[in-house]
Nucleic acid binder design. Structure first.
Length: 391
DNA sequence: TCTGGGGTCCTAGGACCC
DNA sequence: TCTGGGGTCCTAGGACCC
């Protein structure tokens, strides 16, 4: 049975939400990510008006301000964007029970076999676009293909408010018509390597044998290149649910050198991760710390213990130990990060520590705090150290 | 221009075991 | 005394994505 996938992409999502909610921003360059004066912010989303000035995602904010001094700069309300996103995902679910959300602003919809119910796919996609617009005032771009990979690329073919249908059998023709930059999954590094090998177009990759590509780029990337330029790249709709990771990191406005400030930052990051772990009802045995120095060199340290992290104190102590294992004294710290890797559901039984020095009790107290904060988000309970710090 | 924050997946090497 | 082959788990770094 033939498969048909929609890939739906919300156009300049965060900026569009702001423009819709502030009509005075309509038709104006809106830039999400920071406000002038933020030293180390980057652009998260630029409205189409802002893109005309050369502003784009991931660009340092300082540069965006130079290119577009009269732009409307907004730090962004990600919590709110997530709510709007959810509203739109709910609309997708009316078209098919199989919706695979890829991020806050895009999703695949498995539309296989819905033709009898809804009619031709292009018409259905038009209807979906219409419905999203009526309910949220936002536009989306849709790609349709029997290949998820091709659908993903097709949704970016005409933007914003686009609709691109690649009939079955035309995948290869479509891929070959694209510039190399559109090859999703081959980033800056791979693009550079390709160009060094004289492979400057998708067509030129297409002309190489699988063996050649593997010899140059390795098994994985080689096979990826060979399959993707043919539109054969398989992506799995039903991905197995694996243990994931929960992390938090901060880039400081000014480099950190003070031990107290560093430890407070580690504490804050630890709390943020541990609270999210409580929320998800998961635990971890693997803790990692990330340090980025002023010159952007970055190190990570990670440790897997026999026993899961017992509570926030335990988590913080592990982070601190890892930090000092890597820390090069006297270097300014630009970024600190902590993460809980490979988290697993708490309901899976685990070996208990032989001597449980009140860890269980601490953990219970934390959960109580977490539940309290959940009910009263306006009242934040912080560790003494942080309260002292913020005075 | 001077490079966010949240993730996933891959690679290569080492330890350890059978 | 020189040295296999496979598997699993762990660590550090890196590519990539939105």
């Amino acid at each position: 049975m033939a498969k048909v996938y929609f890939h739906v992409d919300l156009d300049a999502f965060f900026a569009s939400v702001e423009q819709k909610e502030h009509p005075e921003y309509k038709g104006k360059p809106v830039i999400i990510g920071g406000i002038p004066g933020d030293r180390r912010a980057v652009v998260s989303t630029a409205s189409y008006e802002a893109r005309k000035y050369g502003v784009h995602s991931a660009m340092p904010l300082v540069q965006a301000v130079k290119l577009c001094p009269n732009g409307i700069f907004i730090r962004g309300n990600y919590h709110h964007y997530a709510e709007v996103s959810q509203q739109i995902m709910n609309i997708f679910h009316k078209y098919s029970p199989e919706v695979l959300q890829m991020s806050i602003d895009e999703a695949f919809i498995d539309m296989s076999g819905t033709e009898r119910l809804f009619g031709p796919f292009e018409k259905t996609a038009m209807k979906l676009k219409q419905e999203v617009f009526e309910k949220t005032g936002l536009t989306v771009s849709v790609g349709i293909s029997s290949s998820m990979y091709v659908a993903k690329i097709a949704s970016g073919y005409r933007k914003p408010d686009g609709l691109t249908f690649i009939p079955e059998g035309d995948e290869e023709k479509f891929m070959l018509s694209l510039p190399l930059e559109k090859l999703w999954g081959a980033g800056t590094k791979t693009q550079e390597r390709l160009k060094k090998c004289g492979l400057k177009t998708i067509q030129s990759i297409y002309e190489k044998s699988l063996n050649y590509l593997i010899a140059i780029f390795g098994e994985n990337t080689g096979t990826f290149l060979y399959e993707s330029v043919r539109g054969n790249k398989a992506m799995n709709f039903y991905r197995e649910v694996k243990n994931h990771s929960i992390s938090a990191e901060t880039t400081f406005e000014f480099d950190l050198t003070d031990k107290d400030a560093i430890e407070s930052a580690l504490m804050e990051l630890s709390l943020s991760v541990i609270m999210r772990m409580h929320k998800e009802k998961v635990r971890t045995r693997t803790v990692a710390v990330k340090i980025r120095y002023e010159d952007f060199t970055t190190f990570t340290v990670q440790e897997t213990s026999e026993f899961p992290v017992a509570n926030a104190d335990d988590f913080f102590e592990r982070c601190k130990r890892l930090f000092y294992k890597k820390y090069q004294d006297a270097r300014g710290i630009r970024l600190l990060g902590v993460s809980a890797d490979n988290v697993e559901k708490k309901d899976v039984p685990v070996q208990k520590e032989l001597f449980d020095f009140g860890n269980e009790k601490k953990s219970k107290v934390e959960e109580a705090i977490f539940n309290f904060e959940n009910k009263h988000p306006e009242l934040k309970i912080r560790k003494a150290r942080l309260i002292k710090k913020s005075k």
